[in-house]
Protein backbone atom coordinates (compact mmCIF):
# COMPACT_ATOMS: atom_id res chain seq x y z
CA UNK A 1 0.00 0.00 0.00
CA UNK A 2 1.46 3.27 -1.16
CA UNK A 3 0.68 6.63 0.41
CA UNK A 4 1.33 9.80 -1.59
CA UNK A 5 0.81 13.45 -0.71
CA UNK A 6 0.28 16.04 -3.45
CA UNK A 7 0.50 19.64 -2.29
CA UNK A 8 -1.35 18.80 0.87
CA UNK A 9 -2.29 21.94 2.84
CA UNK A 10 -4.60 22.19 5.85
CA UNK A 11 -7.07 25.01 5.21
CA UNK A 12 -7.13 26.29 8.84
CA UNK A 13 -3.32 26.51 9.06
CA UNK A 14 -2.74 27.77 5.51
CA UNK A 15 -1.56 31.30 6.31
CA UNK A 16 0.72 30.26 9.12
CA UNK A 17 2.29 27.38 7.19
CA UNK A 18 3.05 29.43 4.07
CA UNK A 19 5.49 31.53 6.09
CA UNK A 20 7.77 28.59 6.86
CA UNK A 21 9.28 25.73 4.94
CA UNK A 22 8.13 22.17 5.47
CA UNK A 23 9.13 18.75 4.11
CA UNK A 24 5.53 17.68 4.00
CA UNK A 25 3.07 20.55 3.63
CA UNK A 26 2.53 21.69 0.05
CA UNK A 27 5.10 19.17 -1.20
CA UNK A 28 4.90 15.99 -3.24
CA UNK A 29 5.82 13.20 -0.84
CA UNK A 30 5.70 9.44 -1.35
CA UNK A 31 5.97 7.10 1.61
CA UNK A 32 7.63 3.88 0.42
CA UNK A 33 6.03 0.67 1.71
CA UNK A 34 7.94 -0.87 4.59
CA UNK A 35 9.81 2.34 5.51
CA UNK A 36 10.10 3.51 9.10
CA UNK A 37 9.21 7.19 8.77
CA UNK A 38 9.79 9.79 11.48
CA UNK A 39 8.12 13.18 11.20
CA UNK A 40 9.46 15.69 13.68
CA UNK A 41 7.21 18.62 14.34
CA UNK A 42 7.11 21.50 16.78
CA UNK A 43 3.80 22.12 18.52
CA UNK A 44 1.12 23.74 16.42
CA UNK A 45 2.49 22.78 13.03
CA UNK A 46 -0.32 20.31 12.33
CA UNK A 47 1.13 17.01 13.52
CA UNK A 48 -2.13 15.46 14.62
CA UNK A 49 -3.89 17.06 11.67
CA UNK A 50 -1.50 15.30 9.30
CA UNK A 51 -2.10 11.91 10.97
CA UNK A 52 -5.85 12.48 10.70
CA UNK A 53 -5.52 13.38 7.02
CA UNK A 54 -3.47 10.24 6.41
CA UNK A 55 -6.12 8.15 8.22
CA UNK A 56 -8.92 10.05 6.47
CA UNK A 57 -10.89 11.26 9.46
CA UNK A 58 -10.36 14.96 8.67
CA UNK A 59 -10.97 16.41 5.27
CA UNK A 60 -10.31 20.16 5.55
CA UNK A 61 -7.34 20.33 3.20
CA UNK A 62 -6.34 21.33 -0.27
CA UNK A 63 -4.19 19.01 -2.36
CA UNK A 64 -4.47 15.24 -2.27
CA UNK A 65 -3.80 12.23 -0.08
CA UNK A 66 -3.50 9.29 -2.47
CA UNK A 67 -3.75 5.72 -1.34
CA UNK A 68 -2.77 3.07 -3.88
CA UNK A 69 -2.90 5.77 -6.54
CA UNK A 70 -6.42 6.93 -5.69
CA UNK A 71 -7.43 9.86 -3.49
CA UNK A 72 -9.19 8.86 -0.26
CA UNK A 73 -12.39 10.38 -1.57
CA UNK A 74 -12.59 7.70 -4.29
CA UNK A 75 -13.24 4.96 -1.71
CA UNK A 76 -16.65 4.36 -0.16
CA UNK A 77 -17.22 3.85 3.55
CA UNK A 78 -17.25 0.07 3.41
CA UNK A 79 -14.01 -0.01 1.39
CA UNK A 80 -12.36 2.38 3.82
CA UNK A 81 -13.48 0.19 6.72
CA UNK A 82 -11.86 -2.86 5.11
CA UNK A 83 -8.63 -0.93 4.62
CA UNK A 84 -8.68 0.10 8.29
CA UNK A 85 -9.18 -3.52 9.25
CA UNK A 86 -6.46 -4.95 7.01
CA UNK A 87 -4.00 -2.40 5.69
CA UNK A 88 -3.69 0.61 7.94
CA UNK A 89 -3.63 0.80 11.73
CA UNK A 90 -3.36 3.77 14.07
CA UNK A 91 -2.36 4.85 17.57
CA UNK A 92 -4.12 8.10 18.41
CA UNK A 93 -2.55 10.75 20.56
CA UNK A 94 -5.78 10.90 22.56
CA UNK A 95 -5.81 7.06 22.66
CA UNK A 96 -9.59 6.68 22.12
CA UNK A 97 -10.46 3.64 24.16
CA UNK A 98 -14.04 2.65 24.99
CA UNK A 99 -14.52 3.39 28.68
CA UNK A 100 -17.40 0.95 28.99
CA UNK A 101 -15.15 -1.93 27.91
CA UNK A 102 -12.32 -3.56 29.82
CA UNK A 103 -8.77 -3.22 28.52
CA UNK A 104 -8.92 -6.74 27.09
CA UNK A 105 -12.26 -6.06 25.41
CA UNK A 106 -10.88 -2.88 23.86
CA UNK A 107 -8.11 -4.91 22.27
CA UNK A 108 -10.39 -7.82 21.36
CA UNK A 109 -12.80 -5.45 19.63
CA UNK A 110 -10.11 -4.63 17.10
CA UNK A 111 -8.90 -8.23 16.88
CA UNK A 112 -12.35 -9.65 16.03
CA UNK A 113 -13.55 -6.73 13.92
CA UNK A 114 -12.33 -8.79 10.99
CA UNK A 115 -14.31 -11.99 10.54
CA UNK A 116 -11.01 -13.94 10.42
CA UNK A 117 -8.79 -12.57 13.23
CA UNK A 118 -5.12 -12.08 12.42
CA UNK A 119 -3.97 -13.25 15.86
CA UNK A 120 -5.42 -15.79 18.34
CA UNK A 121 -6.65 -14.38 21.68
CA UNK A 122 -3.51 -15.60 23.51
CA UNK A 123 -1.47 -13.03 21.59
CA UNK A 124 -3.10 -10.30 23.70
CA UNK A 125 -1.68 -11.78 26.91
CA UNK A 126 1.70 -12.18 25.29
CA UNK A 127 1.85 -8.54 24.19
CA UNK A 128 0.43 -7.31 27.49
CA UNK A 129 3.17 -9.18 29.31
CA UNK A 130 5.84 -7.52 27.16
CA UNK A 131 4.42 -4.08 27.98
CA UNK A 132 3.83 -4.77 31.70
CA UNK A 133 0.07 -4.35 31.53
CA UNK A 134 -1.07 -7.94 32.15
CA UNK A 135 -2.51 -6.95 35.51
CA UNK A 136 -4.86 -4.30 34.07
CA UNK A 137 -6.32 -6.34 31.22
CA UNK A 138 -9.59 -7.04 33.04
CA UNK A 139 -9.95 -3.47 34.34
CA UNK A 140 -12.47 -1.12 32.83
CA UNK A 141 -11.02 1.45 30.44
CA UNK A 142 -12.26 4.15 32.79
CA UNK A 143 -9.95 3.18 35.67
CA UNK A 144 -6.71 2.95 33.69
CA UNK A 145 -3.92 5.50 34.02
CA UNK A 146 -2.78 7.37 30.91
CA UNK A 147 0.34 5.23 30.67
CA UNK A 148 -1.72 2.06 30.84
CA UNK A 149 -4.21 3.37 28.32
CA UNK A 150 -1.40 4.23 25.94
CA UNK A 151 0.01 0.74 26.11
CA UNK A 152 -3.45 -0.79 25.61
CA UNK A 153 -3.93 1.48 22.59
CA UNK A 154 -0.57 0.27 21.22
CA UNK A 155 -1.54 -3.39 21.66
CA UNK A 156 -4.93 -2.67 20.07
CA UNK A 157 -3.19 -1.25 16.99
CA UNK A 158 -0.95 -4.33 16.74
CA UNK A 159 -3.52 -7.17 16.85
CA UNK A 160 -4.70 -6.46 13.32
CA UNK A 161 -2.99 -6.95 9.98
CA UNK A 162 -1.52 -3.75 8.49
CA UNK A 163 0.93 -2.40 5.95
CA UNK A 164 1.16 1.02 7.52
CA UNK A 165 1.02 1.96 11.18
CA UNK A 166 0.27 5.61 11.99
CA UNK A 167 1.49 6.82 15.38
CA UNK A 168 0.86 10.22 16.91
CA UNK A 169 3.24 10.77 19.86
CA UNK A 170 2.79 7.12 20.86
CA UNK A 171 5.06 7.22 23.92
CA UNK A 172 4.00 10.58 25.39
CA UNK A 173 2.75 9.01 28.63
CA UNK A 174 5.45 6.35 29.05
CA UNK A 175 8.67 6.31 31.03
CA UNK A 176 11.96 5.44 29.34
CA UNK A 177 11.85 1.72 30.14
CA UNK A 178 8.30 1.22 28.96
CA UNK A 179 9.00 3.28 25.86
CA UNK A 180 11.87 0.91 24.97
CA UNK A 181 9.63 -2.12 25.46
CA UNK A 182 6.80 -0.63 23.40
CA UNK A 183 9.15 0.46 20.60
CA UNK A 184 10.69 -3.03 20.47
CA UNK A 185 7.27 -4.63 20.24
CA UNK A 186 6.15 -2.22 17.51
CA UNK A 187 9.33 -2.80 15.52
CA UNK A 188 8.92 -6.59 15.84
CA UNK A 189 5.31 -6.47 14.70
CA UNK A 190 6.12 -4.19 11.75
CA UNK A 191 8.93 -6.48 10.61
CA UNK A 192 6.71 -9.54 10.97
CA UNK A 193 4.29 -7.93 8.49
CA UNK A 194 6.92 -6.20 6.29
CA UNK A 195 4.98 -3.10 7.24
CA UNK A 196 6.12 0.48 7.55
CA UNK A 197 5.13 3.18 10.01
CA UNK A 198 4.76 6.94 10.13
CA UNK A 199 5.53 8.34 13.56
CA UNK A 200 5.12 11.97 14.55
CA UNK A 201 6.80 13.41 17.61
CA UNK A 202 8.05 16.69 19.01
CA UNK A 203 11.72 15.78 19.38
CA UNK A 204 14.46 13.65 17.93
CA UNK A 205 14.67 10.16 19.35
CA UNK A 206 16.52 6.86 18.93
CA UNK A 207 13.61 4.50 19.56
CA UNK A 208 13.67 3.06 16.05
CA UNK A 209 16.15 2.71 13.22
CA UNK A 210 14.32 5.22 11.05
CA UNK A 211 14.67 5.04 7.26
CA UNK A 212 13.43 8.55 6.57
CA UNK A 213 13.22 11.76 8.60
CA UNK A 214 10.93 14.66 7.76
CA UNK A 215 10.48 18.07 9.34
CA UNK A 216 6.91 19.23 9.36
Amino acid sequence: MQIQLNHLMPIPLQDKLRQRTSDIWNQDVTFQPGNFVKIKAPSGTGKTTLIHYLYHIRYDYTGKVQVNGQPWQAYNKNEIAIMRQQQISIIFQDLRLFEQLSARENITLKRVMEPKPYYPPEKIDEMAARLNVSHVLEQSGKTLSYGERQRIAIIRALVQPFQWLLMDEPFSHLDEENTQRAAALIADECRARNAGFILTDLDNDQHFPYDVHYHL
Binding site: A81, R96, F98, L109, K110, M113
Partner: peptide, 15 residues
Protein backbone atom coordinates in the same frame (compact mmCIF):
# COMPACT_ATOMS: atom_id res chain seq x y z
CA UNK B 1 -19.99 9.06 19.69
CA UNK B 2 -19.48 5.34 20.16
CA UNK B 3 -20.58 4.58 16.61
CA UNK B 4 -18.25 7.30 15.30
CA UNK B 5 -15.32 5.76 17.15
CA UNK B 6 -16.25 2.30 15.91
CA UNK B 7 -16.27 3.57 12.34
CA UNK B 8 -12.92 5.34 12.89
CA UNK B 9 -11.44 2.11 14.19
CA UNK B 10 -12.58 0.40 11.01
CA UNK B 11 -16.04 -0.98 11.64
CA UNK B 12 -17.86 -1.13 8.33
CA UNK B 13 -21.28 0.54 8.16
CA UNK B 14 -22.41 -2.81 6.77
CA UNK B 15 -21.37 -4.52 10.01
Amino acid sequence: REIQLLVILGTAPRQ
